[in-house]
Amino acid sequence: MLNRRVKRRYVSVVYTGSANKAVNAIIRRCSDLFGSIATEKAGIRLVRSDSNVAIIKCRQEQLDNVLAAIALLDPPVVTRDMSGSIKQLRRRLA
């Protein structure tokens, strides 16, 4: 059986308050809207945060659900950019 590498997407978001709170809010909203199984599959994690911009990662197959959850979040979190590699994303953010 082929052991395929899981594809991820790195998403940079602009938030207010603390980065951990923002990521927890995204996870909670995603879980509310699409269920616990889909949210676990998404594997939403905070990669790094800098002032009010954070980079989160999630699995590509659940990206649409994660983006929809971000768009429907209150207080709002704005998606700035996304990429398949963190290096490319950081280059674009610089």
Binding site: D64, N65, L67, A71, V78, T79
Partner: peptide, 9 residues
């Protein structure tokens, strides 16, 4: 709301 988020919705 960014373009990809609108697309996701």
């Amino acid at each position: 709301v960014s373009g990809p988020c609108l697309d996701a919705i």
